[in-house]
Amino acid sequence: MGLILAILVQGAQMVLVLALAPGLVGFTRKVKARLLRRQGPPILQPYRDLYRLVRKEAVLADNASWLFRNAPYLIFATTWVAAALVPTFATGLHFSWAADLIAITALLGSARFFLALAGMDIGTAFGGIGSSREMLFATLAEPAMIMIVFTVALVAGSTQLSTVAAFMVDHATLRVSLGLALIGLIIVALTENARVPVDNPATHLELTMVHEAMVLEYSGRHLAVIELAAALKLLLYISLIACIFAPWGIARQGDGLLEMAFGVVTFVGKLAVGGFLMVLFETAIAKMRVFRVPEFVGGALMLGFLGTLLLFVSRSF
């Protein structure tokens, strides 16, 4: 019985992240539009877009290979699994020990690997430029992420996110290393989600684009699945930041349904706050040139490294 309940809660987490992800995107678009004094599309627009795209036929380029057709599903599946493994409303979920934070980072790496390959499949200049730049950013963002994971893991004594969240609830103190990790993680999150100082999610057909260039040849259900995966990734990063740096309200292992319901409510609240802050930052800043980005992400790498180094020097930082 306990096992069935545990699996049900885990299933609820998987469904929850999937259901909330497009809503988060819709919310950020709405807030951004309002900040720019535009009306903006309704919050539910991404759900409608997905519904519309899914029902359309997929147009494939003449020389698209099996990789091009299967990559969207693999990207979606790896991102979804990664997002489902980050504690959102409850810690200690049944399968949370299946992968720690390093493995979650690597899962996102798998998704990126397939996305970059899909961008190169047709052999257009745009796809190549997107893949090349995405991999460039990843060469700095991924080690930055690993260094941030190190910092957090050295503070909490574990790379297991459930344990980290539980530790942060119980022993939350202001620490220099965690501050560095937070700034680094925000930079990585902005980079990985192709947000404004790095890339612009709202534009198509600009030479500066990265993510949109890779998915340019996709249409119909394939595009829908990729957009859903991108939304899941945004949700993953916000819930990751929330789980490590603001875990309050999250249901603990052994808590009842009431605490879990409260956890869901606080989680939605955290998503809204996180999305709002991100859009506020995006609106206030201009997009960078591509070759400024390595300096920006390299900053995250240095911050993460500094945090780790401080903790190697003394556990009290």
Binding site: R55, E57, A58, V59, L60, A61, N63, I122, E217, R221
Partner: peptide, 14 residues
């Protein structure tokens, strides 16, 4: 539940 139709066409490439 949605679509499985596929059409082949020349690459889009903007």
């Amino acid at each position: 539940f949605a679509s499985r139709a596929v059409r082949r066409a020349p690459p889009w490439d903007c």
